[in-house]
């Protein structure tokens, strides 16, 4: 099984992705994470304006069989939340890197210690086999 890992993103070991857009970053969960979880049927996200610490949990995403905490890959203040996911979570499975985005953060730190696509793909490969 192979999973998509777009080159323009950076990745955490807890399977979140980060897309840098100026001084803001967009966060979601990876293709590998959505596949491992199965059909997502429930999500809890924080409110815009909340401050996040890198590495802390910021929400939860659940499928019929499993529940998985979401970890902030970078810290900062949340400037936007993908509210559409509250009613319909299908984008998390269907397009995890696009419509499945979760938070937009004004980052207060660097994302340099996250993995690039090649490193993350190798990481996924090492845990999947």
């Amino acid at each position: 099984m192979s999973f998509t890992t777009p080159d323009n993103l950076r990745y955490s070991k807890s399977h979140e992705w980060v897309r840098v857009e100026g001084d803001e970053v967009v966060i979601g969960i990876t293709d590998y994470a959505q596949d491992a979880l199965g059909d997502v049927v429930y999500i809890e996200l924080p409110q815009a304006g909340t401050s996040l610490t890198a590495g802390a949990t910021f929400g939860v995403v659940e499928s019929v069989k499993a529940s998985s905490d979401l970890y902030a890959p970078v810290g900062g203040e949340i400037v936007a939340v993908n509210a559409a996911l509250e009613a319909d979570q299908s984008a998390i499975n269907g397009e995890p890197y696009a419509g499945g985005w979760m938070l937009r953060i004004k980052a207060d730190g660097s994302e340099d210690d996250l993995m690039d696509a090649a490193a993350y793909a190798a990481f996924v490969d090492s845990i999947a086999h």
Binding site: G38, D39, V41, S63, V64, K65
Partner: peptide, 11 residues
């Protein structure tokens, strides 16, 4: 096997 395609589809 825990699921093939999708747990919901199978259900």
């Amino acid at each position: 096997p825990v699921q093939y395609s999708s747990l919901l589809d199978e259900h």
